[in-house]
Design a protein around this nucleic acid. Structure first.
Length: 753
DNA sequence: GCGCGAGGAGTTTTT
DNA sequence: CTCCTCGCGC
């Protein structure tokens, strides 16, 4: 009988069949990782493991959804396995068990913005200058501590804290106290508190160990210490842990991901079985070679080399133009050209960039050219002010202790409650340990004047009514009522501006999401909806359905693939980022290089690296050199294209590009001229200006019978030239090496006289 | 308490 | 360039 594992290649099959014990699957980009995980899950079920006992942890909700669907397609009971992200897994555990560690199960999840607000207030309360201690940076320090599972009490007592760290310790302690009083958890807490639960309550741990007898973790290279510990705890009893990852795709060190988790897996699990998946099914050999060439420059990595049975495909196109406007137009024009000449769809293309702000120029260009696109990531839908406001109402209703949400909406829309009286009530609440909402209800006494308190009391009464209402209505109906009762919709309508109409539209969309949620959720409770709002990223909404070009950061692109990929802004100071390039720590540059590797390997058949000499950043014009990663790609794989006003590269950084004929001597002159003036702030001080000579002609510069020089074989005679797609295949006969075929665009064949 | 305008600070990447 | 804060006058 045919086995469903027959569709796997030998290492894939080995990975899927190794069901017990610790397994590390080193899965290179495009090596069929998801296939292996899903088949492995199906195999477990086939062997008699209850799907109920299988846990699969992914990085994004989208990956989780896809995983679940694919397991289900393999085996009907696959739908019962638990597939979830770290964060939603922890929420589900904590909703049931958090009372054991001193929170109420109706806790609120604070996202980055909420956390920062609370941090700001904490700094203020402790009279710590937010100039010396920017909330953001204290927040990231605290976040890093939580990722490392260091609680405030431990950090405070740590020896050798300097003055600054001492302040951070005090702030951390109070911040955490306030979080708990608000019955709120920040993102990091979700993991941290789950670990805390398991460490302090062996019964809870044991129950979950029994439940999750087989555990799989995707994107293991991106786990931080807290997540690592969580996995370790859960898998300890049965030892059936399968992690899948690729150290070359570790791109979240800045968020606490510890690459050692994957590099040291064999040490942590001495009996672990290691399976390497090195056959790539996604990209052309040219793209793969470029990716391999780049990543091989990283020192600390597991040895592996992706290979493919696919064809060589097209060369990597490296385009350089004058500015980001031209870059956007080049991308748009190239896409249009493909659509005209070949059978491409918009959805076949992705435009990737290092920073979200780069999407702006691309979008402008696409709008001018009429290219449909979708931007993923960036400002999340749920991050818009109006959505946050409405969500804050929902959260304040659901969790009365949540003072961050309460404070956000107490005077939104304006209802005459000012900072002065609010601060007095807050102070009282903080000092006497009373929840803010209770203090507000007591405002008459606290302010010593019923008149001054009247507006506050009206607000409190409204919130009470809303709370009653929330128990009677569906989420979407409740939001509709809320918009009316609070006057929120009326205020926006009264403004009657384009912006206000936009916001109302967004709120409509939000209600639409609530309706959708009610249709699809098992339990359409307000709490579940709020979780979705807190934990769902935009990339999760990625669907291949609509025919539009995808725009997203390189980070967001991980796990996706596209027939054609543009990596834009391929410039020093941007990619790699200025910080990584100048920090002096090679680790930072190595992470950028991995990001580059991730970007390149998203492409199936065509890859474009684009760069502009001049680019506007924060309103300032900067002059950038090509990315240092460019010269790590052998020139054999590259075809160079220049923008209208460009001719030769403006820099000797292209040591893989030596044969641009006319302009070489001019470059030197220009460089001298330019080196004097416009020195862009903070970008290494080197700057260049372009010149006005036309791009090199596209013809080959030789014909059959000519003598040409090839880099590797010396001088030979051209025997034939044949069209090959957009390029030409040139056959050359060499005295020593014999007959060789070249792609004209790839090779550096040059006529000799 | 509110609205407006000036001034300052800040941007890598995100569950 | 853009978001946010602050200070001022009403």
């Amino acid at each position: 009988m045919e086995d469903f594992l027959d569709s796997l290649n030998p290492p894939q099959r080995e990975a899927a069949e190794t069901t017990d014990g610790a397994v590390l699957i080193l899965a290179g980009a495009g090596s069929g990782k998801t296939r292996v995980i899903t088949h492995r899950a199906a195999q477990l079920i086939k062997l008699g493991v209850s799907p109920f006992n299988i846990l699969c942890i992914t990085f994004t909700n989208k990956a989780a959804r896809e995983m679940k669907e694919r397991v289900e397609a393999l085996t009907p009971s696959g739908s019962q396995i638990w597939v979830s992200t770290f964060h939603s897994l922890c929420v589900r555990i904590l909703r049931r068990e958090i009372a054991k560690i001193g929170y109420d199960k109706s806790f609120t999840i604070y996202d980055a913005d909420d956390s920062e607000r609370l941090m700001k207030r904490t700094l203020k309360e402790l009279n710590v200058s937010d100039k010396l201690f920017p909330p953001r940076s204290v927040m990231s320090a605290v976040s890093a501590l939580k990722d490392e599972l260091v609680p405030p009490q431990v950090y405070e007592k740590r020896a050798a804290l300097n003055a600054r760290e001492g302040v951070v310790a005090r702030v951390y302690a109070l911040y955490q106290k306030r979080l708990q009083e608000n019955n709120a958890l920040d993102f990091d807490d979700l993991i941290f508190k789950t670990v805390e639960l398991f460490l302090s309550r062996p019964d809870a741990l044991n129950a979950h160990q029994e439940r999750f007898r087989y555990i799989m973790v995707d994107e293991y290279q991106d786990t931080n210490t807290a997540q690592y510990t969580l996995v370790r705890l859960l898998s300890k009893k049965y030892g059936n842990l399968c992690v899948v990852g690729d150290d070359d795709q570790s791109i979240y060190a800045w968020r606490g991901a510890n690459i050692r988790n994957i590099l040291d897996f064999e040490k942590d699990y001495p009996d672990a079985k290691i399976v390497k998946l090195e056959q790539n099914y996604r990209s052309t050999r040219t793209i793969l070679s470029a990716a391999n060439a780049v990543i091989s420059r990283n020192a600390s990595r597991k040895d592996k080399r992706l290979w493919s049975e696919g064809g060589a495909g097209q060369p990597v196109v490296v385009w350089q133009g004058s500015n980001e406007r031209e870059e956007a137009e080049y991308v748009a024009d190239t896409i249009e050209k493909h659509r005209r000449q070949q059978d491409w769809r918009f959805a076949d293309f992705a435009v990737l960039y290092r920073t979200n702000s780069q999407s702006r120029a691309i979008e402008d260009g696409f709008v001018r050219r009429g290219v449909p696109y979708r931007v993923y990531g960036g400002t999340r839908f749920y991050d818009r002010k109006e959505i946050r406001d409405v969500a804050a109402y929902l959260r304040a209703v659901y969790n009365p202790a949540d003072s961050v949400s309460l404070r956000r909406i107490i005077n939104t829309p304006r209802r005459g409650i000012g900072d002065a009286s609010l601060e007095r009530v807050e102070e009282y609440a903080a000092e006497s340990g009373v929840p803010l909402i209770d203090a507000l209800a007591d405002a008459g006494r606290i302010l010593g004047s019923p008149a001054k308190a009247s507006k506050i009391l009206a607000f409190v009464a409204m919130m009470d009514r809303l709370r009653d209402l929330s128990n009677e209505l569906s989420v979407s109906d409740f939001i509709r009522h809320l918009l009316g009762m609070t006057g929120y919709a009326a205020e926006l309508e009264a403004q009657n501006t384009d912006e206000a109409r936009d916001r109302l539209d967004n709120i409509d969309e939000f209600i639409g999401k609530a309706v959708e949620f009610e249709r699809s959720a098992d339990t359409p409770l307000l709490s579940a909806f709020l979780e979705e709002v807190a934990l769902v990223a935009d990339i999760d909404a990625y669907e291949a359905g609509a025919d539009a070009v995808s725009l997203m950061t390189l980070h967001s692109a991980k796990g996706l693939e596209f027939p054609a990929v543009f990596i834009t802004g391929f410039e020093d100071g941007l990619f790699p980022s200025y910080r990584a390039q100048t920090s002096g720590d090679v680790k930072d540059l190595e992470e950028e290089r991995r990001l580059c590797y991730v970007g390149i390997t998203r492409a199936k058949s065509e890859l474009y690296l684009t760069m502009a000499v001049e680019r506007s950043r924060n309103g300032q014009t900067t002059y950038n050199l090509p990315s240092c990663f460019l010269k790590e790609i052998p020139s054999d794989f590259i075809k160079r294209v220049y923008g209208k006003k460009m001719s030769a590269p403006m820099t000797d950084d292209f040591d893989n590009e030596i044969e641009i004929p006319p302009a070489k001597h001019q470059i030197g002159e220009f460089r001298q001229k330019i080196a004097i003036g416009n020195k862009p702030a903070g970008f290494g001080g080197r700057s260049y200006i372009m010149q006005g000579t036309p791009a090199p002609a596209d013809n080959l510069g030789f014909s059959v019978g000519d003598k040409v020089r090839a880099l590797k074989y010396g001088v030979g005679e051209v025997a034939a030239i044949a069209p090959a797609g957009a390029d030409y295949e040139v056959t050359v006969v060499f005295p020593a090496a014999g007959e060789k075929k070249f792609m004209a665009g790839l090779s550096k064949l040059k006529k000799v006289d």
